[in-house]
Nucleic acid binder design. Structure first.
Length: 186
DNA sequence: TCATTGATGGTCT
DNA sequence: GACCATCAATGAG
């Protein structure tokens, strides 16, 4: 069994667009009660910060968005439409409030059901709001570079479900792996 | 294949 | 009380 090494905090402390593209193909690992769940990240969206009208942090620092404003390398998990959780990764220095939404996973190990769609990412990993703010530079929830990373082709598209954000809705901030069957809404 | 809708809750005004 | 970074099931074409 190869030992999976959590990516260092410096990985997250960079331009969110760069982090988003490099996250594609990485392995997301969640260990709970000796069960290890692993999914390959195949689809992400970048949210750039308070100036990005589509980002939660655009409405200022609140109880809900507190984690986004914090230091990089932490998990921002929120509930949407009452029944779904979405997993984000905080990027850049404390105060920038940028983050990457993990939209889809390709099952590698112990995933429950499909990992396709931002709500199902959390469901398949058994993540809930108690993980909000969790440090990803840890050994129970983290992202690691797999031993063999296939060459991938990245597709850039506008983000989903953010039509209210004016010109920001048109920006190509959604990234996914070309021709991957686990990507949502191809 | 596309459009509609129900389930469901936290956050902000 | 309105608004959502949703999903699955349904029914019409």
């Amino acid at each position: 069994m190869p030992s999976l090494q959590a990516l260092p905090r410096s990985f997250y402390d960079r331009d969110p667009v760069i982090v988003a593209e490099e996250l594609l193909g990485m392995h997301l690992v969640c260990r709970e009660e000796s069960l290890e769940r692993i999914g390959r990240i195949v689809e992400v969206e970048a949210y750039l910060g308070p100036h990005d009208k589509a980002a939660h942090s655009a409405r200022g620092r609140t109880r809900r968005t507190e984690v986004m404003f914090g230091p990089p390398g932490h998990a921002y998990i929120y509930v949407i439409y009452g029944m779904h959780c979405c997993l984000n990764v905080v990027t850049e220095k404390e105060g920038n409030a940028s983050a990457i939404l993990i939209r889809a996973l390709e099952p590698i190990q112990n995933l429950d059901g499909r990992g396709s769609g931002p709500g199902l990412v959390c469901r398949s990993l058994h993540l809930n709001r108690s993980w909000n703010g969790h440090d990803l530079v840890s050994d129970d929830l983290f992202i690691a570079e797999p031993d063999a990373r296939d060459a991938i082709r990245i597709i850039r598209r506008p983000r989903i479900g953010v039509d209210y954000a004016g010109s920001w809705a048109k920006r190509l901030l959604r990234f996914y792996i070309a021709e991957n069957e686990w990507v949502s809404r191809r």
